[in-house]
Write a protein that binds this DNA or RNA. Structure first.
Lengths: 354, 354
DNA sequence: CTGAAAGCGCTTACAG
DNA sequence: CTGAAAGCGCTTACAG
């Protein structure tokens, strides 16, 4: 319908405003920035003309001279399919987007099907002067993305604890070890002693930490850890499902599970129901994230809320401080978690928790 | 650790390349664009210098002169919480991001907590020359966002069928009426006659269309439609849950359900199980989206795949064609759907489908 | 308190 | 086939 060229009606610029207001372009520019050197009277006049003409500053021009585009690149994990289906990311993206809006930053997405592609995307944004800083939404070992960001001395921050350069990176995280311990302690308080830890993706930093917390809780409770109770995703011989079936049909099955996240907990609930175990009567389950799924299963899931939205707001804030030079230290922010009790945990006897 | 100013080491520009290669900046520029007027020999030399210096074009500068930023703004629905938790959006975002990468476009997110905020965000991007076009991820009635995009004659495309300006908007969609009909036909073929249609959000265009398809299927099968069998989210008196309970404890309960999407189907499964109905023995369920959830419930869900990823790729392609003037008509692309059979549907007798 | 001028890094007629 | 010059829309010393 409309041709590119035809629609190319000249946007109104600082020049148009200046002419109409009878001032110099520099005066308009300074008015936009609310410079103290411009008289209120002039500002008022200029502002009214700006409004009248519907002036909006050209961000490319501004970016060119300021060498900052007020844009934050959000780096998604390489989408091999599985990881990225976790709605967790949606919550983070949404939180970041919201926080950026408030700070008048834009958010640009960097993604890729392979690590190469992702790196290229980041590079274009970085060297192209398109993003002033980056937020990395995941944390994994030997990450070439982190290496790149670090080597190029770009501004970046992470959600989650980094594997490397820990002391040089701005990051926002939960105390995942404590969360793992708290989850386990919660089950211990319900008199469970045979507690399993089941997760899928053990390459993620947070999984490691939660497992450490689980071990710590058992140790402090002087309960000997049973290595069979720890399932770390699929092995080369067995899928997660098989391993779980085997564990629960063994001689000495667990009475409770700490699950890696709500999604895994959901799957476990189905699996266990299939082998005729009742939840929470036979097996109690606690998990992490407190996502929408917690309310969608039967029984509803007791889960640890990690305050993802707040996490996202915080990364944005810290990164922006860093970009704008208000803060130059590699600050870490650790947010608290909170157990949200629902119906998936019982006393070890199988009696309802009262 | 690192201060803003210190890190501000001058990026290498076209000038640096020109000097080192012993040519003019215009030659470098033309080499980048692979202009036919430059000799291969010169190009080769310039390119090698570019590589050596690690040159990356400054996108802001380029955008300033070209008046296009090779950026697509992706407009998320106003996040009142509920809608946005649907992982559906994550899939769309991912698909769009992937397609944009391939076309060397960047994706910028526009979001807001209120419609005002969202509009402001879009406006900044549009008038600020930040985005060349927009993709709207949802379709709702009386949308001020669409009004704005339309009034300002911006380039935009939608996923889903628009309420207004249908003949002037580039969009990509499924044939949702046909999908609704096919879902219903599938149940009819299993000898079900008492089929309910249950959805949550009836302000969305696709819900309306699927319902129309449901009605059409019944009509063609000469089955009288029972208005009680249609539940359209919560009314002012009753929540969805209450309505469903009531329907299934009524004298003449349905034996099958067409559910608005997988999430709703999941909830329905729990609900029905709670009132001691077996699925698929007592009630068959078919839904839409074929998301990860289909494999997470017991029984696994028969669901209609809408090819979301492909949908996303298509919007990007069409929008880019439009932006670049390769295509000036308000083209629509309708993608096929596909029933993915799993375990949630039986013959009306309650016997397993074989 | 305000303006004229230079410059950010690129592209593109216009010459040659 | 290549280069010198103007210009995209803004900001910021530098004068006054």
């Amino acid at each position: 319908m409309i041709n590119n060229k035809e629609v190319d009606f000249l946007a109104i610029t600082i020049k148009d405003v200046a002419k109409k207001a009878g001032v110099a372009t520099s005066t308009v520019s300074r008015t936009i920035q609310d410079h103290s050197s411009i008289s209120e009277k002039t500002k008022k006049k200029v502002r009214s003309v700006m409004k009248e003409l519907g002036y909006q500053p050209n961000l490319a021009a501004r970016g060119l001279v300021n060498k900052n585009m007020r844009t934050i690149g959000v780096i998604l994990p390489v989408s091999d399919g599985s990881v990225f289906k976790n709605p967790f990311f949606l919550e983070m993206i949404r939180g970041i987007s919201k926080a950026c809006n408030e700070k008048k930053y834009m958010v640009a997405l960097a993604s890729g099907t392979t690590e190469e592609e992702l790196l290229e995307s980041i590079q274009t944004m970085a060297k192209g002067g398109r993003a002033d800083g980056f937020i990395v939404l995941y944390s994994k070992k030997k990450d070439r993305v982190i290496d790149y960001l670090h080597r190029e001395k770009l501004f970046y921050a992470m959600i989650g604890k980094p594997y490397e350069y820990e002391n040089e990176i701005v990051y926002v995280d939960n105390d995942n070890q404590l969360a793992g311990k708290d989850a386990t302690d919660y089950l211990l308080a319900l008199k469970h002693e045979k507690i399993a830890y089941i997760d899928k993706k053990f390459d993620q930093m947070m999984s490691k930490e939660r497992l450490a917390g689980y071990k710590q809780a058992l140790m402090l409770a002087k309960i000997e850890m049973n290595p069979k109770y720890i399932i770390q995703g699929q092995t080369k011989n067995n899928g997660l499902e098989e391993q779980v079936r085997k564990l629960f049909s063994s001689e000495n099955p667990p009475t409770a599970i700490v699950a890696g996240d709500d999604l895994i907990a959901m799957e476990l609930i189905y699996l266990l129901k299939e082998i005729n175990l009742s939840i929470p009567e036979d097996v109690s389950i606690i998990s992490f994230n407190n996502s929408i799924f917690t309310e969608m299963v039967q029984p509803t899931l007791t889960s640890i809320d990690l305050h993802v939205t707040y996490l996202s707001e915080q990364v944005v804030e810290k990164l922006v401080d860093f970009i704008e030079g208000k803060q130059t230290l590699a600050i870490k922010v650790i947010l608290p978690h909170e157990i949200i009790e629902r119906k998936s945990c019982n006393w070890q006897t199988g009696e309802a928790r009262t």
